[in-house]
Write a protein that binds this DNA or RNA. Structure first.
Lengths: 280, 280
DNA sequence: GAGTGGTCTAGACCACTGT
DNA sequence: CAGTGGTCTAGACCACTCC
């Protein structure tokens, strides 16, 4: 027991590992075991430093590790707390894309009602503050390859993001690209003030005579960039899910490419793969 | 210019942000701009500390940030280097699952040849050291819900992982669960020494008369756990992609649940969504 | 005002890499 | 061997939260 009456975790000098790692793992055990339930505070840094006869710097290194592992968050002036597991949003992309396609045939009021408020980016305009920003950009090497067009081809870039007003809102931010040549056929498509567009991109494309045939999703993960951390309000030690979505029309032409960023701790992407029967 | 003949980045005291963040962003700019190409070393910590009149601790804080952003890696005794972007492995799950199903009808030699060496987990046994470990466990709350069985139901847990012998090998680690009651119908399925099983799980299940109807993939991301970082050899500041795969047979019964972990910087999951025509 | 985490310093010793 | 990053200390001042 320490002078504080708290049993010491086994953070010994005989262990060959750095002491800050020993402390981090000891605390992680307590969290895993439920001795430190979600929402509960860790003992303060100075307190831990005293108890374990370590410098505060080393204690902070241990806590930094716990943050990187996504187990705790620190709040200045308050303390460090065990993270509550966030409510996850399930994004069923295969259903969603077909539903959006079907909705194009409905009239505007119906589109607005039945998921019409959904951007192709996965945002709903309920209690979210919606932002859209258009500009024309030349295709870089990556985008040119995805569109199968020469580098430098004019693209309409549309950036979308939302800021949550309510808690636990589903969030994402995205960049969507259209071939400028195609979008220009309908001047409304170049006008960002018409966003949010009921029915999303599939309806927008339908106004210039385009019907989608396939959408290819490519899913990856990486740590958030600073701007993404800010907009998505993800904390330190959380990953983002990156979705590259490539839409192809009936002629096999790539008509939209979008990159959508989701907070990894709040998003699950679902794909339902139906298999062919053997006896067929 | 400093005494080292290197132009100082703008890390000033007038800026309201912490100096270690200013330094990190200045270095990030150099990397983004290509002034520090992939593979090139950063100046040493002591060198940077001298140039910018900061303590080495603060410089290390800046470099820690760059590592968290996935931009650099540090190697003890050598230096800190700009990360090379790793070769990505594209995992086309929809194709893969159907191909595995079709392969079940082939004979063993053919299965072995045509992707038969693939575990359902996505491993190929080429230049990888393959590990499999079986044990019987009771279903926890999460698994029970996924299988739609009571908590505590006996499951066969199979853990798979590989250690790369060659460089840049595709990697993953996984836990796969079968209902023990079902697996026990064929004693070979309880015997871990029979791994790697040519044809993977779909063939294993076929030996007890099971044909799969659907596979649902759930994809998420998070920072790696220490064990995962070790096995997958992911560096600090990389995310892992987590795939939960639920397989259902023709009767709608859940017959396999697997969790597969991939290194986020080397894996892209691809789903090709075919849409129905409007005129149908 | 007391207590918290955030930033920062000026040292120290170590393990590891290259020569 | 000199130079690198990894660990660690014992302080300091600050911004912030809560009472």
């Amino acid at each position: 027991m320490t002078k504080l009456g708290v049993p010491l975790l086994s953070v010994t000098e005989r262990d060959w590992r750095p002491r800050y790692i020993q402390l981090a793992e000891a605390l992680r055990d307590q969290i895993d075991r439920g001795q430190l339930p979600p929402g509960s505070p860790l003992r303060s840094e100075t307190d831990l430093a005293d108890s374990y006869a370590m410098s505060r710097t080393s204690v902070r290194q241990a806590i930094k590790l716990l943050r990187d592992w996504g187990l705790v968050t620190s709040e200045q002036g308050r303390g460090t707390f065990v993270r509550k597991t966030r409510h996850r949003v399930r994004r069923e992309n295969m259903l969603r894309y077909q539903r959006e396609k079907d909705a194009v045939l409905l009239d505007e009021a119906e589109r607005r009602a039945a998921g019409g408020t959904e951007q192709d980016t996965g945002l709903s305009t309920g209690d979210l503050e919606f932002h859209a920003e258009y500009q024309t950009v030349p295709a870089d090497a990556d985008l040119a390859a995805r569109f199968q067009v020469p580098e430098g081809t004019q693209l309409l870039e549309r950036r979308y993001w939302t800021t949550p007003r309510a808690e636990d809102a589903p969030l994402s931010m995205s960049r969507s690209y259209l071939l400028h040549e195609i979008a220009a056929k309908n001047p409304d498509l170049l006008d960002q003030s018409r966003e949010p567009w009921p029915g999303g991109t599939q309806h927008q494309l339908s106004t210039v005579g385009i019907e989608l045939d396939r959408i290819v999703d490519e899913v990856t993960a990486r740590p958030p960039r600073p701007r993404e951390a800010e907009i998505l309000r993800v904390e330190h030690g959380v990953s983002v899910v990156v979705l590259w979505k490539t839409s192809t029309d009936l002629d096999g032409r790539v008509v939209e490419v979008a990159e959508v960023i989701f907070p990894g701790d709040r998003t699950t992407m679902v794909y339902d793969v139906k298999l062919n029967r053997w006896d067929k």
